[in-house]
Each structure stands twice: as structure tokens, then as C-alpha cells.
Nucleic acid binder design. Sequence first.
DNA 1: CAAAATATTTAGTCTAACCTAAAATATATT
DNA 2: AATATATTTTAGGTTAGACTAAATATTTTG
Lengths: 223, 223
Amino acid sequence: MPKTVTKSAQDYLKRIYELTEDGSSASTNDLARELNIKPASVTGMIQKLAAEKPALVEYQKHQGVTLTTAGKRAALEVIRHHRLLETWLVQTLGYTWDEVHEEAERLEHVISEDFERRIAAALGNPTRDPHGELIPTADLKMPVDDSTPLSALRPNQNATIQRVIAQDPDLLRHLDGLGLTPGIQIEVTEYSAFDNNLTVRIGKKSNVLGLNITTKIFVEISK
Amino acid sequence: MPKTVTKSAQDYLKRIYELTEDGSSASTNDLARELNIKPASVTGMIQKLAAEKPALVEYQKHQGVTLTTAGKRAALEVIRHHRLLETWLVQTLGYTWDEVHEEAERLEHVISEDFERRIAAALGNPTRDPHGELIPTADLKMPVDDSTPLSALRPNQNATIQRVIAQDPDLLRHLDGLGLTPGIQIEVTEYSAFDNNLTVRIGKKSNVLGLNITTKIFVEISK
DNA sequence: CAAAATATTTAGTCTAACCTAAAATATATT
DNA sequence: AATATATTTTAGGTTAGACTAAATATTTTG
């Protein structure tokens, strides 16, 4: 039976997961920034996580950390909670996608596995949250996402928005205002090589989007 | 603005509220028992709560504690959270009344006021939780409960069950099996002065109930 | 490639909340 | 009223997780 992982430890593991999704290791400083904690404190916690048995992270001084199998499981558990909660807050309590993050951030640490199963079932075992992020499966596997950044599209390509990587409520409301939400069909009509702006048609409206936005929106290209 | 009240402090305040509802003060030992904490630890926390500004409890050495106005507000806030959560877990996620307590016990400390408002509204601002306990109002007043213990009824009295005071899941399932749940109509048909047993008709069935049960069920007597 | 800049770790503090053991104070009994 | 018992408090210790300041690695750059 796995040790009790504290709320703080869960937060660390979740961030480490995110920072190492690309295969790299997570540095002390990066973690400190993401967690709003001083680097010295991060070192302390990392050492504790590495000393657990089974170890939750792999750690060599000055080399950054990666997750062990046990650590990854714990991280995916929290991420599954978070994304199911966001989905459920939006669908059953009328939250908007810019309002759910904080609430889910607190709830994710305290809900039971029973609660998790109940909301998953009530939602029909969704695979993506309101931002289009993939929800780890009940057996804690992260599905593979084969979506493409919108910034890679060129004129005459059609696509469906899969996910939007952003937490900032202002940005989220802005994107919602433009109709740039998961599930929406778009078409790229123009591309400017100088500033990498794309003109994107959403329904009957068109908008010029900069890299700031087009790198945060991931799409599935229509055949 | 009120100070941040920690989860532990919230638990203390909630218990103190319950132990002092009858107007008495709560003793260190009683609190320790209710909270599954050693008496010495309780003294420490009480002193801290009394030293807050504004003070959350009134405390004189060896005299037990009572809640201040600020402390009572904080307690009612937590109790409102708890009872709304129980109601909502039962109504929207299919929990039974014997399953909700623990889950609500953890969630009550982390939900936002926004979340509270949303579930209250979604439930139609209920006044009682699944056990029939009164839910403090949004402005943190505890409604008056004028119900009578079932043990006080005598043959030929009819009544409606208002609330059932119990957390033990086994007992709750037992009562549910007997049909003794809030809202149900009952009639007392027999009384035994020796053991204080009551025979109670629920629909077409009758059961003999001892004091252990009849003092935990509160009813409104039909005119 | 050495100096400067940056990143990381160590060492020592702090707070919250618990614990045990012992001392102090209340209450109850004779 | 004196003693016994029960309750409560004090004193000192532990763990988790944060902090600051100082020391040490590592990386970047002139």
C-alpha cells in the first residue's frame, strides 16, 4: 500500500510531471517558480520525496528530478482528480472554464476514490477536461495526444480545436469571446511569414492571431 | 476581514459549537474525546483560539470554553458547508446517508463561498440535510428546531420524522431499513413503561424501538 | 579559461499541530 | 478538613513544510 502523500507532496509531484512531460528533468528553480516556493525549500522536499520508500522521485544533486513509477502514479492520480473535477464543476454547477482552476486545485487533494469514480461515471467517463486536456484513465495511464499546435497550420488547412493551454482567466475569457474553444472547427485563411500571424476563420468570423495564441491552441487537422 | 482559520481550528470550533448548543461550556476532556486528540493538545489550541484577534473562543483556565460571536460565525460557516455538501452528495451523486459524512468532513474545509452558493442554489436552498439536521442560513443564523424526541411520544400520537441524530453508518443503514428517515409519517401504538420501549407503526409495518433509538429520532407531532 | 553570474544545497529558524510525562488544580469522598 | 481521584495545564519534544543567509556547484561569458 502506497504511503500517504501529503497535499504539498502532491503539488510537487504534479508540477514535476508537467515539467518532465517532454522527457527532460525538472530543475529546482523551475519547480520553485511553478510552486511559488523558495528554491531552498524545494531542495528539502525533493530530498524527502527521494527518500520515501518506494521513492517518488529520482534525484541527483544539481541534476534536477524526474518521477519514479510510483511518483508518476501519484501525480497522475492528482491530475485525474483535477481534470475530472474541472469537467464536473463546469457541467453540473455552471462554472465557466476560467473559474474552475482554483476550486479544483483545492478539491483535488481531498476527494476520495469513491468520489472520483462517481463523478467520472456521472460524466460518462470523459477523456478531456473543459480545456481539452486529456484526463488520465482510471488505471492511471495518460492517453497519447497527437494534436498539433495551431501555429503549425497554413492557409487552406481546416482543423478542430482539441485543447487550449492556458490558466490565466483573462486569456481564457478572451479566447472564449473569440470562439476558440475545444471542439470548434476552424480554417486558416492567411499566414504572415514576418510575424507568424495566422488569420483564422471561426464560423463566419475571422481573426488574426499571434504566436502568443497560436502556440497555445492545439488542433486536429481535418483530412 | 476575518483571519484565516485553519482546518484544525475549524474542527475545534465545530465541536465546541456542538458541545455548547445547550448553553453549557465545553470541557477540555470532552473536546479531546470528540476530536480524538489528547487533552494537553486541546489546551494548547484553545489558548491559541482565545488569543486570536478577534478571539474565537472565551476561555478561563479550568472553566471550559464557549464560542465568541466570531467563533460562532466560523463554526456555522463550516457546519453550513458540511450540511450542504451532504445534501448535495446524496442528491446529485447518489450517495446514501450513511456514506456522506466522511466525504463532507474533508470537503467542508476547502470549498469556496462561490461553490457554497452554487450548490445551495442548485439544491433550491434546502433547510435540512439528509439526516434532517438544519442547515445554517447563508447569513449564518441557525434556524430554530422545535422537534420533539420520539421517546416523548405515547400511544395514539402521530408524527413526522424531522431528524435523526446519528453518524454511525451501521446504525444509519439499520434505521433506513426500518423506514425511519426524515419526512416519514409514523404512529406510536404501544408504550412499555418498564423499558421505555415504543411500538411504532411506519406505513403498514410496526417495530418496537428502545430508548437507544427513540432518543435519536426527532419528530414533529401531528395535530 | 578564469571571472562573474546563476543555480543549488546546507545550516539554522519558524509556525502549526500534535505528542508524552509531570505538575498543578479542581472536585469528590470520607 | 484532609485525602483521594479526576481533570487540566505546563514543559519539553516531534514532524511537516516553509523561510533566510551563507556556502558551494555549475554555467556563461569576456
